[in-house]
Design a protein around this nucleic acid. Structure first.
Lengths: 204, 204
DNA sequence: GCTGTTAGGAGTACGCCGTACGCCTACGAG
DNA sequence: CTCGTAGGCGTACGGCGTACTCCTAACAGC
């Protein structure tokens, strides 16, 4: 009986994400999103309680795009978890400017929960149960979150590498040498190399 | 020959950290720190270029407190890395309100670099070199960063647990069950359990 | 067709924030 | 003694999140 709503949460999230993708996370504000939608700044508050909720919607949108159906059951479970991880990583990387947001709000997003559910299923199939499974899932979560973060603001990639290259070699012999080696390891190898270490540790 | 500086970067960092510890990260601002020091807001800009640099000083202070001397060489290398990790985790946990800051600025802090240097030395002693060592260090970094983050804003602890408990059990059977189990695993066990999985994977 | 309910839309205002800029003061080396 | 520099303070701008108010437009039920 009232006037119909003119916006969906999804359209709201899409607009916010558009702002982020175009102008960076720093440009995200209630005002810029409102402008993006062609409405007045205060109008947003009819759809979200506050900025934080808006951020939650954005993360939902990023993580909602992850395919969480279990991968082909003929592959070994470690490879299947790797597939799940690759899907998640790619979805996150698709919106690099939003990464900080995505990682900090991940735990509240339905998409993230569906991902966990699927991975837990794979672990169960591998015969991992109880406390062992709790630890395994958390370790995977931790590694994935942390490693993606490092990729994008880490010491061994991008701008950080040059900081390390400038280090006094006599006081940081290992670090300077490692940085040189690191320059030749590509990020994908590094990420999945680390993941495989963890999976091997989980296996037995 | 000029008027002497009346503040050290260290005192600045200490004041900023005091604000954070007392009133939370949200309370950190150039103005609140200036007030803490009994000076005018703009005064800070003679010691730091901008807010980001101030944050860097804070992180330096948190991570500078980590003991980075190599632990007793009679223990196996995995245990020695565990000791290094414990030291880092405890230093970070000593300022829980600053965790977000600490983890995002970690890569630029001298303390963090010294930590890496020591750990690389331990890995070298274990016979891990070249690209393998790059991957191992990054995996450790990633895991530690991510896991600490999860501990403090994660889905399986604190407020997040109740979100999961409220999930429809039929659509998330594994997740709801795991959450119940997780409630009985203490955070230390979980953190170091995960670390050991990774170390085992690194070992061979 | 009128009315009541509710969403839409706009505007104003408050108290924060980071920080650019300018002015005066106090110190200490030459 | 003087001059260069750091210290210290105040003012000001543009942006933020968001509380609140006022009016309008669409539809359900009478």
């Amino acid at each position: 009986m009232p006037r119909p709503r003119s916006l969906t949460p999804d359209r709201l999230a899409a607009s916010a994400l558009a702002v982020i993708d175009r102008d960076g996370l720093g440009a995200l504000s209630m005002r810029t999103v409102a402008k993006e939608l062609g409405m007045s700044p205060m109008g947003l508050y009819r759809y979200v309680a506050d900025r934080e909720e808006l951020e939650g919607l954005v993360v939902d949108r990023v993580l909602g795009a992850v395919d969480t159906s279990p991968p082909a059951p003929d592959a070994p479970w470690r490879e299947r978890i790797e597939v799940m991880t690759r899907r998640l990583r790619e979805a996150i990387a698709r919106h690099p400017e939003a990464i900080t947001l995505t990682l900090t709000h991940r735990h509240r997003s339905p998409g993230g929960l569906r991902w966990s559910e699927t991975v837990l299923g794979l672990l169960a199939e591998a015969g991992i149960d109880g406390a062992r499974r709790v630890v395994a899932l958390r370790a995977l979560h931790g590694y994935i979150t942390g490693a993606i973060q490092l990729e994008h603001l880490g010491p061994l990639s991008g701008a950080g590498t040059s900081v390390i290259a400038a280090l006094p070699e006599d006081r940081f012999p290992h670090l300077t040498e490692t940085a040189r080696t690191a320059a030749e390891v590509d990020p994908d190898q590094e990420f999945f190399g680390g993941l495989r270490l963890l999976l091997r540790g989980i296996e037995d």
